[in-house]
Design a protein around this nucleic acid. Sequence first.
DNA 1: TAGATTGTTAATCGATTAACAATC
DNA 2: TAGATTGTTAATCGATTAACAATC
Lengths: 223, 223
Amino acid sequence: MNGDKEQANASNMKILRLPTIKRLPTYLHILKRLEHEGNEYVSTTSLINELDFKPILVRKDLVLMGIPGKPRMGYCLKDLIEAIETFLGWNKTDEAFLVGAGALGSALLGHKPFEENGLKIIAGFDIDESRVGTIIHGKKIFHLSKLKDLVKRMGVKVAIVTVPWQAAQEVADVLVEAGIWGIWNFSMIKLKVPPEIVCHNENLSSGLAVFSVKLQKSREHLS
Amino acid sequence: MNGDKEQANASNMKILRLPTIKRLPTYLHILKRLEHEGNEYVSTTSLINELDFKPILVRKDLVLMGIPGKPRMGYCLKDLIEAIETFLGWNKTDEAFLVGAGALGSALLGHKPFEENGLKIIAGFDIDESRVGTIIHGKKIFHLSKLKDLVKRMGVKVAIVTVPWQAAQEVADVLVEAGIWGIWNFSMIKLKVPPEIVCHNENLSSGLAVFSVKLQKSREHLS
DNA sequence: TAGATTGTTAATCGATTAACAATC
DNA sequence: TAGATTGTTAATCGATTAACAATC
């Protein structure tokens, strides 16, 4: 192991395992449902009733949350939910700006789960004059030229990029210059940003690709 | 039914690698750009200029497409693009219905990349009377009760589910009963469907989780 | 030819699964 | 206690990376 990783592990006791992190929201959703239904404890065996995962996988994931389970009973729901939310940083709220108020951008402006999970979009930006000044899902759309000033005035640190790929790098440059340090990028291209900027790429087409291949396979099976 | 296709299918059968499939749309996007710029050949070394991946990974992925590259030149762009599109089934178009015309559903109704990549959404469905009868991004919204009849009349085989999780299983039951055999599920829950139905779950919260953890890490680093 | 690039085989790394001991 | 469930350690599996031979 290299020095970086050892230090990171030592400093925050958190091992960053992407596959585990991606499964956590699914667990969290089920756990909240179970709590809402009046349960106090949950075992992995009951959790997997609602999942496709193997029980040992769930157990391994939950161990990372640092909550001790009780043999024969399982985990205290309240503690486990809190631990997962803390692990993900979903107990605190980040304010975010969204750039690109097209079809996808508009959807994210109105997507409730984000706000419930620590990401509050407070305004949108676009360069299309027909969109500027409108209100989408309760959020005002400003002209992109206003972004830098508003970022500084409001201390916003996070941005969501939903512009067409042709415009994405230019928007990223503006964001970095404005002082944003976290970018959730829904455009198709890799953004060139300084190494200290957190940039996470989301790609809906990847999901479509997997779905398409699965459909094809099943079609072959039928014939 | 031609020889080429059978061969492609045969190799598909051998190796279905999810990580590779998820990377293919990213390659495809860059390749199309390069072709549009007038290039005829592409090498992995030039491809990775636009990517974060290691060249050997790209080469391994491309080998699976069954297109021979030429040492010193790389791959014929036209052939490679065609091979990837065939592999993904994006050269043929599936017609799809979308159920749940809320924020996310509306976005997908207007999301151009889907249509360009073999998935044409032809109508939406909802139970909210204020949405029924409206037209969103050029697509008419029908009442859910009309779905079964329209599926049968139009021979639609694929559906996208963007309803709140509380309604998702009920919608899935309707879809299966109507004769749909492919479901792209954007709701938070695992749908219970017969084994012959293709069901692919998409989870935007997984992406948010990864982004949140990355943001947290960088915050810790700063302090 | 010389050199760049492909494509194969082997090594490494990381994630999942299995086995089982610990515990309430 | 007996039995269910956790949590640890080892084994397996799959994906990425490295090394290098083949090729134009």
